[in-house]
Design a protein around this nucleic acid. Structure first.
Lengths: 231, 231
DNA sequence: GCAAAAGTGTTCCAGATACACCCATGG
DNA sequence: CCATGGGTGTATCTGGAACACTTTTGC
């Protein structure tokens, strides 16, 4: 078979990306979802997504979708997996590549998000989503937990300065269980990626909790190599 | 935007599946690869793959490709991830979904494989593969190791009856390090998924090693729930 | 002065690791 | 009888888990 016929005879498909966008705010793990604008299922809740364009990699497509919705770029994003069932999209046969992203809610453009009809909802408020988007979310949560066991990705969700109780709270949200204060503190400080600041955050207690910042160099070294970071 | 234009205006893409097919034979972890039949890169080594057809899910496509090449079905297979770079295939823009499979070499159809120009090569013999197939293989190896830490998938690669030294050997191949005989034996037997047979395999020693078979019920319970199975 | 959250060490236990000798048998 | 790979038990160490009281300060 010639090159021509090999590629020319193959069927072509619509390919989309869908983004599971996690954030952390008010001590809750949240998800950014939108009201779908087009039929079928117009008006229903949906992950943010879009079609992969000609000359655009799937990674780039996911970055673009995220940027268009939240206004930010250069954020943590990983491919989850491809969803390729024939009938998953009731409007047409669409193969979707799902990505999950971790963003600092404080740093994103709320106005832009609102303009796109996007909303941050905490995990227990998540409604029925269109198509297989609830499955995607579940898979993303599983992946997030797996990933967090060996990589300190939790930091991607926090503002630049944060307190240890905040960080612990984040992991409690991710794993849906309480964590021992002392053990958590011990383990996290042992990683030696945190810089303790003089400032305190008194918003949640009279005594105030020390603010920390992570040491970007040490942090990225760990993030790259992968650390055992069981909580 | 109407349903019509939303889906109709979106670009369509060639979508392929590529399979990283692992096997285990003669104490070596092996990979099934073929000589590519079409240009570009005709004659070069390649993973087995094919285009996703209309009305065919990506999972089904991977199953079909595997069946066509090896003659077997109902085997362990998982999606690895999607490879979506624009220029990854030099013949055309093709988005590929990679799958990895674990098969018992003894049970597959060698004649069929040969007819397709397929060859089993052990890991250290793997040549340069086309496109991004070497990356896919590396990613699959990483995934295999991760998966094997918590799921007893190693069994998928062995014949029905196997000896403990064989099983240990398999894990040594997967992890590329030697494992302590006694500790391995202790841990594997503690899982309580093995049935010891009376027969011995004397092909590798005068004394002979006991053959084992795994208890399918207990095995699948573990495989489903996921076990901590650190070696 | 008291309520409310932050911060701090030690003990215990389980599971991982390290390690050396005897066994069975074919040649 | 000996070479070869199979099979077995124990001591040690490390890291995770459990656990309660003191500190600070705004009200």
């Amino acid at each position: 078979m010639s090159l021509e016929t090999f590629y020319k005879n193959a069927p072509r498909h619509l390919v989309a990306v869908d983004c599971i966008i996690f954030g952390f705010e008010d001590g809750k793990l949240k998800l950014l979802i939108i009201k779908r604008k087009v039929d079928p299922m117009a008006g229903a809740w949906s992950l943010v997504g879009g079609f992969v364009q000609e000359g655009e990699s799937t990674n780039d497509a996911a970055g673009r979708v995220l940027r268009q919705t939240t206004g930010i770029q250069d954020i943590y994003m990983d491919q989850l997996q491809c969803y390729g069932d024939v009938d998953r999209d009731t409007g047409a046969r669409v193969i979707s590549v799902a990505y999950y992203a971790l963003i600092r809610i404080s740093e994103h453009d709320r106005l832009l998000a609102n303009a796109h009809g996007a909303h941050w909802l905490s995990m227990h408020q998540i409604p029925e989503l269109i198509f297989d988007h609830n499955s995607m979310l579940n898979d993303a949560l599983t992946r997030l937990r797996d990933k967090a066991r060996f990589h300190p990705i939790g930091f991607e969700l926090l503002p630049e300065k944060f307190t240890l109780p905040q960080l612990r709270n984040l992991y409690e949200e991710i794993y849906q269980r309480t964590l021992d204060k002392r053990n958590f503190r011990k383990k996290i400080l042992a990683l030696d990626i945190l810089e303790k600041l003089e400032e305190k955050d008194k918003s949640t207690s009279k005594k105030g909790a020390h603010l920390y910042r992570f040491d970007k160099k040490k942090y990225s070294a760990l993030a790259d190599h992968g650390v055992v970071f069981e909580i």
